[in-house]
Nucleic acid binder design. Structure first.
Lengths: 236, 236
DNA sequence: TTGTCGCGTTGATCTAGATCAATGTGAATG
DNA sequence: CATTCACATTGATCTAGATCAACGCGACAA
């Protein structure tokens, strides 16, 4: 199962971009490309940390659950994102594909060693981890202190930042359209709400003409300023 | 203002432990020891990231706030912990001393450069950041999905892990005592609850003889198993 | 065309936790 | 030892969001 970093679609965005051609060949030998079907798990909460990976294609959710099934999504991963827990022996959360996906997998021990031998790669990894930490801390403010309307508005804005479809957005205007890569239950699990509350908030925003919903997966932001106001103070 | 890493009380626990004597002398030149009074801020949310530091003594809270004053504590820092945002130009949160404290401060640009030249140091920093990320993600599950009794129980257990006073804990038994480094409002800001709810949950636990409260700051865990049960399922 | 299956929405009610309002309590001060 | 001030507790309500329960609706199969 030979794959080729040279041709990798994420080679310029993933942490591998820290490597020169020789090093790419070396890391190439440690990796294998794996396809994962939507709904399939790549890593399970509580398992030993045996693999790490780069997301090449698709999308993943990172979740943690309580004994009775309550679930919280604690992260989302897109192409070029890094998955797994290097330099640690336990995975503290489950990683599941949201769509049919491809990842570039390494054994954790191989990867750890390779990283220690390549400081530039380790630096990239550190930078990513720091960015992720900032993002996660922002979610803590949301989960701990924001109201339902504030949560939904913040969520839509963050999604539009990450997913804004260039072909549909009007440059200089506030019109933006994007497709959520998941259904209402997952949105609820990201926001720490129930599916019903998410649904009600969405229809409320639609009624107020802040957003339009061509269908359940697609969102069009009609009034980004308003959405920002709601996200930061809930002044509906 | 000469300080001396050789004599530093946290030199074996802080990231500096990655350095050999020569390197310690070098980093010594970049640092200065600063005292901070309880309640004083070291870093402000939104400010440019100009400094980073190691906590030498005391305790800090890391907070993020909404326009109307709602506040969420998104981290706690103790001696040997690292503070600030290296390799980034903006602080996303405020760092405030909870008690009179001492930190070992570096200019961020000096620190960034020094780290890049010392991969072992960068590795230590990465490890700390990964551990912190795991911890923060655990809080997300708590903030998004746990009930008030579950939150308070988890909090007390986490605190006993971090602060258990060896001189008061009975080896092999479940009796543990520790002093919270902050008041009820701060506990509420950690748990995403109100001060009243925290208070009610604490007295409930006291009534059920799961904990004892010698005074407002001190907690004694009488039945750790029970506390674990409550933390994971709220089966009160 | 008629199920039916998986979602999402909508409505009616319930409740955990917030809010509002006193009432302790203990350490510091004159 | 009274006074005050900053917290913490306790009690009485209120409400945002959960829960319970239909209902809608498009996709897909028979």
């Amino acid at each position: 199962m030979m794959n080729n970093c040279e041709q990798c679609v994420v080679k310029n965005k993933a942490i591998c971009s820290a490597l020169d051609p020789d090093e790419l060949i070396a890391i190439n030998r440690l990796s294998r490309k794996v396809s994962i079907k939507a709904g399939q798990a790549l890593i399970w909460e509580g398992d030993d940390s045996l693999i790490v990976a780069n997301v090449v294609e698709g999308a993943f959710k990172l979740t943690s659950s309580l004994a009775d099934g309550r679930e919280q999504i604690i992260g989302l991963l897109y192409p070029s994102d890094f998955v797994g827990r290097p330099f640690g022996d336990r995975n503290e959360y489950t990683v599941t594909a949201l769509a049919d996906s491809k990842v570039c997998v390494f054994s954790r021990s191989d990867f750890d060693q390779f990283v220690r031998e390549h400081p530039d790669l380790e630096h990239k990894l550190l930078q990513r981890t720091l960015v992720e930490l900032d993002r996660v801390r922002r979610s803590m403010l949301m989960l701990g202190r924001k109201t339902a309307p504030e949560r939904v508005a913040s969520f839509l804005l963050e999604m539009s930042d990450r997913l804004a479809d260039a072909s549909c957005s009007v440059v200089g205007g506030s019109l933006q359209q994007f497709a959520l890569p998941f259904g209402r239950q997952q949105v609820a699990d990201i926001l720490g709400l129930t599916i019903e509350t998410v649904s009600r908030q969405m229809t409320q925003l639609k009624k107020n003409e802040v957003i339009a919903l061509p269908d359940h997966r697609n969102v069009q932001i009609l009034d980004a300023n308003r959405l920002h106001d709601i996200a930061d103070a809930g002044s509906s």
